[in-house]
């Protein structure tokens, strides 16, 4: 089995107790054939560094206790700084819809509301992986 697989870094705040959605999406993406690195981060730099070492195709950040704008503002430059300019960046969780567009302007390719079937996210990833750019 040496075919290529989509690799996803699924990040959530280290100290956020709300892990259910993150765990569900991790399983759903796995069951959609993806390799999912589950990762609890303390500061955004850690996501970027993990994304780099793991050489993932997708960085997915699960947000449950707000701070999405702050994460996006720091994460996108941190990825670019490391030369990860072709990684797909998505967010999901408790994020108000009104933030989706501002987040896109910061470089987040797509935000997902909570509770969606994981297949929707997996389809989006499959369709967009490799075409994304953070430039």
């Amino acid at each position: 089995m040496s075919q290529e697989r989509i690799k996803v870094l699924l990040a959530k705040k280290k100290i956020d107790v709300h892990g259910r959605g993150t765990k569900l999406i991790a399983r759903e993406l796995r069951d959609a054939g993806m390799e999912v690195v589950y990762f609890r981060f303390g500061v955004v730099e850690e996501i970027a560094e993990a994304a780099l070492q793991e050489d993932v195709d997708v960085v997915a950040v699960s947000i449950m206790t707000s701070g999405q704008m702050q994460v996006a503002r720091e994460l996108i430059p941190a990825l670019k700084e490391r030369g990860m300019t072709d990684v797909l960046v998505i967010m999901g969780g408790i994020i108000p819809e009104v933030d989706f567009e501002p987040l896109r302007e910061l470089g987040v390719h797509r935000c997902f509301p909570p509770g969606l079937p994981g297949g929707v996210v997996a389809d989006y990833i499959r369709e967009n992986v490799g075409t994304a750019t953070l430039a």
Binding site: K13, K14, I15, G42, V43, T65, S66, G67, Q70, V71
Partner: peptide
Amino acid sequence: HPEAKGNLGQC
């Protein structure tokens, strides 16, 4: 603390 940034008084 650096990890507090972005989380202070939020939730």
